[in-house]
Simulated scan of single mutants.
Amino acid sequence: MFSNLAIDVALGLIFIYLLYSLLASIVQELIARLFNARARVLTKGLRRMLEDDDHSGDLGFFGRFTFFNFFYELGWSVVYFFQPFKNSPFLKQFYQSPAIRYLGENSAAARPAYISPAIFSQTMVHLLRGPHKDNQLSDADAIRECLAQNSLQLSADTLAHIRDLFEDARHDITAFRLLLEAWFNETMTRASGWYRKHTQAWLLILGMGIAAAFNVDSIAIARILMKDKSVREQMVQLAMSRQPQYAAITDTLIRKNVLHRDSAFFRTDTTWKVMVRDTSLIGVYGMLRNDLGDAKNVLGISRACVTDTTATGLPVVRCGFTHPYQRNGWLIAAGWAMTALAISLGAPFWFDLLGKVVKFRSAPPPNTTVTGE
């Protein structure tokens, strides 16, 4: 057993960050479901593919600066939240096609959260081909005529790219579909990154709220763990005893796509079976709540109200921070900020780090020889 002060303090902090990261991830997942966030990011990715979704020219000279573009695009994100098909006639037609329309879970979540590459390419071919009629043009001729006349009113850049893909396929429908699927896969890889960025931003916001609500002051916690041996030992024992259980929880939530590591934004199936059930989330939340209570009791960081008597003899109730390590308001704010940043890294990061620290702590000290009888 290899143990020292620095390792035990790090283990305690990592365990606390893991607990609150899981809690923030569960809240973030519920928010994502409430606003159908995955479907909205998927729509954004398809808009980038099928429409000329570039508003930088609207700002003129200011469009050269990232600062102004950021807020301008943020405004358009709000517009697209309420009007997802604004200025996007072909995108609307794409979503109204039967192959896509019936992938939604219900009327409240009409747009699907996942679309397979095969479904995308099939839908594109159907739209470009138009209504199929016997003894008429072949599929390749129908697509060539549609692209030549732009009967679907595709935007200029999208039309040019699809024409190039069709020419690269030498007007072969099978090859054309493969090129469409490769295009879709590449864009959805980017969409996965966009969703992870959105998730990390939400985790940062939730992390700050959790840190303030639960008074998770990283600076004060580190000082407590360094100074109080009994508290440190209790926290280490709690972390090492819970590590196997959280291994199963973290692995399950990653596979269910609640926690994000390197998840693609599309799946081979287009159902909602990959989503973890609400009952499972509630069960995980119950376990987290118990462990968070134990951790808080061990650390002893809490707010309290005291009654002071003023000069007039009237009692005044004052509520605030009572722990001796939380006397400086700026240090408390800095401790909360550190906690929020730690939570934004995500539960998979802290779980992996927890496993490595536990393994290192459990390893025999260096220069230890094992003798046999």
Rank of each mutant, 00 (worst) to 15 (best):
S3A: 05
G12R: 02
G12L: 03
I14C: 12
F15L: 05
Y17R: 05
Y20D: 04
L22N: 10
L22G: 07
L22C: 08
Q28D: 13
E29G: 14
I31D: 06
F35L: 01
A37V: 02
L42G: 15
L46F: 09
D54Q: 08
S56P: 00
G60T: 01
G60N: 12
T66V: 13
F68Y: 14
E73N: 04
E73I: 00
S77R: 00
P84G: 02
N87V: 06
P89R: 11
F90D: 00
L91V: 07
L91T: 05
Y95N: 03
S97C: 00
S97G: 00
S97V: 00
P98M: 02
A99S: 06
Y102W: 13
L103D: 00
G104Y: 14
E105V: 02
N106R: 04
S107W: 07
A109K: 15
R111Q: 10
M124G: 05
R129F: 04
H132K: 12
D134C: 04
D134K: 12
Q136N: 02
A142T: 04
E145W: 03
L147Y: 10
A148C: 10
S151C: 07
L154H: 00
A156H: 13
A160R: 04
A160N: 06
H161I: 01
D164T: 15
L165I: 00
F166S: 03
A169C: 04
A169K: 03
R170I: 07
H171G: 10
D172V: 04
L179W: 02
E181V: 08
A182Y: 10
F184E: 09
N185W: 08
T187Q: 13
T189V: 07
R190Y: 14
G193F: 08
R196W: 05
R196H: 10
K197N: 14
K197I: 14
L204M: 14
G209C: 00
N215D: 14
S218P: 01
I221D: 02
I224F: 09
K227N: 10
K227W: 06
K229N: 10
M235I: 09
Q237M: 02
A239F: 10
R242N: 13
Q245H: 14
A248K: 06
I249F: 11
T252Q: 09
I254G: 06
I254V: 15
R255F: 02
L259R: 04
L259M: 00
D262L: 10
F265I: 09
T271F: 08
T271G: 05
W272H: 14
V276I: 11
V276R: 09
L281A: 12
G283R: 13
G283C: 07
G283V: 07
Y285K: 14
N290P: 01
N297G: 03
C305R: 03
C305K: 07
C305Y: 01
D308C: 13
D308M: 15
P315M: 09
P315G: 07
V316M: 07
G320N: 05
G320P: 05
Q326K: 10
Q326H: 06
Q326L: 15
R327G: 07
R327S: 09
N328W: 06
W330M: 15
W330N: 13
W330F: 14
L331T: 12
A333I: 03
A342Y: 09
L353H: 10
G355Y: 08
V357M: 06
K359M: 09
S362A: 15
S362P: 10
P365N: 05
P365S: 11
P366G: 06
G372Q: 13
E373Y: 03
E373V: 11
E373C: 06
